[in-house]
Design a protein around this nucleic acid. Structure first.
Lengths: 124, 124
DNA sequence: CAGTATCCGACCGGATACTG
DNA sequence: CAGTATCCGGTCGGATACTG
């Protein structure tokens, strides 16, 4: 048996890169906005601690999913955007989303009631 | 607005269902074997604690990804297989795997050196 | 504005022993 | 064979305060 043929390795790598409580919503916003300031992301995402958001962004940058751009000057101005590598992941993420809505609609509804409810509250 | 349009709610739900250190390799084997006994899985997966494997299988069953079937008698005989819901996730998982091999080949190679290396050791 | 520095509790993977 | 029952250590998300 040739173990180099194992097909779960890449899957494991990808899931590891995506694991992190706020990464899906970060990716969602970056996919829809082309470029966002740090505070912009921080205000939009409900109840996330600054440190945690920074941790996630650092990981995603280290994994090459997003690109961090810093303009010199004061006050600091940092923006994040999706890399080509990240964009290439879009269809796969879309497939995961579609599957959930089709086969796990209840859990999705539950998720919306909790997290998205908090989001509205946060923005008002 | 014509980007890769995924919302993050379903994505979050799906990733939560897939989060677990050994779930990718469990799914891999169940996808390729149609039906497996518990010990069969346990022997194949390197260095996983019985309790952890059971935890993962219980979660996956609760999420409806796999089906647990128990035949009465002694000694116990329990087998696991992928549900229709789980099978429907196959293409999306495949897309994640493909992306990793194309855009994160280094990490995949590294993963093989560690985990698959342990597998050989475990089987010998 | 965009970070760092601490500190903390909860959860998760894991080791080990026991059971019907 | 296929589980339970404990206990443990590390990591992760999070709250709070401080800084260039």
């Amino acid at each position: 048996m040739n173990y180099n043929q194992f097909k779960h390795c890449g899957l494991n790598v990808t899931l590891t890169m995506l694991s992190g409580k706020w990464k899906p919503i970060i990716l969602y916003h970056l996919f829809h906005n082309a470029e966002m300031r740090f505070t912009e992301l921080w205000r939009i995402i409900p109840k996330v601690a600054k440190k945690v958001l920074l941790d996630h962004l650092k990981q995603m940058e280290a994994d090459g999913l997003i690109i961090r751009e810093e303009k010199q000057g004061f006050p600091p101005e940092v923006s994040y955007r999706v890399s080509e590598k990240g964009k290439a992941l879009g269809p796969a993420l879309s497939a995961l989303e579609t599957w959930a809505n089709e086969y796990a609609a209840d859990e999705v509804a539950e998720f919306k009631k909790t997290t998205v409810g908090k989001l509205r509250q946060h923005l008002s």
